[in-house]
Amino acid sequence: ITVAELLIAVEDFDNFTADNDPYAEHDFGVIKLSGDTFFWKFDYYDLDLQMHSPDPTDTNVTTRVLTIMLADEY
Rank of each mutant, 00 (worst) to 15 (best):
I1T: 09
I1Y: 06
I1G: 03
T2M: 03
T2L: 02
V3N: 04
V3K: 07
V3D: 04
V3G: 00
V3Y: 02
V3M: 00
E5N: 03
E5M: 01
E5C: 05
L6Y: 03
L7M: 03
L7C: 00
L7R: 00
I8V: 07
V10R: 00
V10L: 02
E11K: 04
E11A: 05
E11R: 07
D14Y: 07
N15V: 03
F16H: 13
F16E: 11
F16I: 10
T17Q: 10
T17A: 11
A18P: 10
D19Y: 11
D21A: 11
D21Y: 10
D21E: 12
P22D: 02
Y23K: 13
Y23S: 14
A24M: 06
A24K: 07
H26E: 15
F28P: 04
G29Q: 08
I31N: 01
I31L: 00
I31A: 00
I31C: 01
I31H: 01
K32Q: 12
L33E: 05
G35I: 02
G35V: 00
G35S: 08
D36F: 12
D36E: 14
D36G: 00
T37V: 15
F38R: 04
F39L: 15
F39D: 15
F39P: 02
W40G: 07
W40Q: 07
W40Y: 14
K41S: 08
K41V: 12
F42V: 03
F42N: 06
F42D: 04
D43Q: 10
D43V: 15
D43M: 12
Y44T: 05
Y44E: 09
Y45Q: 14
Y45R: 13
Y45N: 14
Y45W: 15
Y45F: 15
D46R: 14
L47H: 08
L47M: 13
D48R: 13
D48T: 15
L49G: 08
Q50C: 11
M51H: 12
M51R: 14
M51S: 13
H52A: 14
H52C: 10
H52L: 13
S53F: 13
S53P: 11
S53R: 08
S53D: 08
S53C: 07
S53K: 11
P54R: 03
D55L: 02
P56T: 05
P56E: 01
P56S: 07
P56V: 01
P56N: 06
T57D: 04
D58F: 02
D58C: 01
D58G: 01
T59I: 12
T62K: 12
T62S: 09
T63F: 09
R64G: 06
R64C: 05
R64D: 04
R64P: 03
R64E: 13
L66G: 03
L66T: 01
T67N: 14
T67Y: 06
T67D: 10
I68L: 01
I68S: 00
I68D: 02
M69L: 08
M69N: 06
L70I: 02
A71Q: 08
A71V: 03
D72S: 15
D72A: 13
E73R: 05
Y74T: 11
Y74H: 13
Y74V: 08
Y74I: 09
